[in-house]
């Protein structure tokens, strides 16, 4: 009576023991599983390797475009440096976030989103315009109320100046007057590190109030044009540099992924061979014991 009552609990315990023991004893059943995993890892390695090669070739072009656009943007901004233009404080600001549509490039998009959140935090006087789907998805979760515009379709190729102009036009057409426009992009420091950095594009008001403005004889009618043009210049610079960062980050990410896949492949091949040997040894032992046992009879 007592033994029978105790039995269910015992059998449950046994079952639990048996379940936990199964994955440990790598035996006949898992051999095929290991083979399958090995195959899929090999395929993934092939894909990541190809993506790395594609990113490398795109990177050289992107970097060339970046260095060219950087001198372009810096030259355009030199006017404001000479005039010592300062952004107007406590006025409405627009942040333009330059990310892209494509992922699989490490943490550069989330780094940009994080920087945006940090800058926006505690400052309700900020609106956000986003270039690229990735940062849009991330920021629409936290700062959806502040987004006024989003652009998609960037990142397929090296950004053109026509892209920058169209974006600048759309920003200029926004109903609200922004005292300053901050363009946030990933600054290319070296192939390993990028830093979210803002560039300022000033409003007409800010330009006229800058201390050394009188040194330039600028007509009021021309000023609006200059402001639009410099916004497009800065955007072009930011887009090109962001693109180069993305390609370089993708190259690194894919390089790491291929390396990890290689590690996993070697680990799984060893495991596979060992399991195979164990299975063969087990079978041999079974045959031999069977033979000797039948001999005795």
């Amino acid at each position: 009576m007592l033994s029978r009552a105790a039995r269910p609990a015992l059998s449950v315990g046994n079952a639990a023991l048996a379940r936990s023991a199964v994955p440990n004893s790598a035996n006949y059943a898992t051999l095929r599983e290991i083979e399958g995993r090995l195959k899929s890892i090999r395929n993934i390695e092939k894909i990541t390797k190809t993506m790395k090669i594609v990113a490398s070739t795109k990177l050289t072009r992107a970097q060339k475009a970046m260095t060219e656009s950087r001198t372009y943007g810096q030259t355009s901004n030199q006017v404001f440096e000479e005039a010592e233009t300062k952004p107007l404080e406590d006025k409405k600001t627009l942040m333009v976030i330059c990310s892209s549509d494509k992922g699989l490039c490490g943490g550069i998009h989330s780094g940009l989103s994080r920087a945006t959140r940090r800058m926006v935090e505690g400052n309700s006087n900020v609106d956000i315009a986003i270039v690229g789907e990735k940062c849009k998805a991330q920021l629409s979760r936290s700062n959806a109320k502040q987004i006024v515009l989003s652009f998609a379709g960037v990142g397929k190729d090296v950004p053109t100046f026509a892209d920058a102009q169209a974006i600048a036009d759309q920003i200029c057409l926004l109903p609200e007057e922004y005292a300053s426009v901050k363009i946030l992009y990933n600054k290319f420091i070296n192939a390993q590190s990028y830093e979210p950095t803002p560039i300022e594009a000033f409003s007409e008001e800010a330009i006229t109030q800058s201390p050394n403005f009188a040194a330039y004889e600028i007509d009021d009618a021309v000023l609006a044009n200059m402001r639009e043009y410099s916004l497009a210049n800065s955007l072009f610079w930011a887009l090109a540099e962001g693109h180069a960062c993305e390609q370089s980050a993708r190259r690194n990410a894919m390089d790491n992924a291929s390396k990890n896949a290689g590690d996993m492949i070697s680990k799984f091949t060893i495991l596979y061979n060992r399991t195979r040997q164990a299975v063969i040894t087990g079978e041999l032992v079974e045959i031999i014991t069977g033979a000797t046992a039948s001999e005795d009879m």
């Binding site: 629409s140 006024v148 989003s150 652009f151 053109t160 169209a166």
Partner: peptide, 27 residues
């Protein structure tokens, strides 16, 4: 090829994304 522009954009209002439109046409 350098003059090509194929962007889409959407206006946002109160945290909701509006319709996706072609940027060139809209401009």
């Amino acid at each position: 090829r350098r003059g090509e522009m194929d962007l889409r954009f959407a206006k946002w209002q109160n945290g909701k994304q509006g319709e996706n439109k072609n940027l060139g046409d809209a401009n």
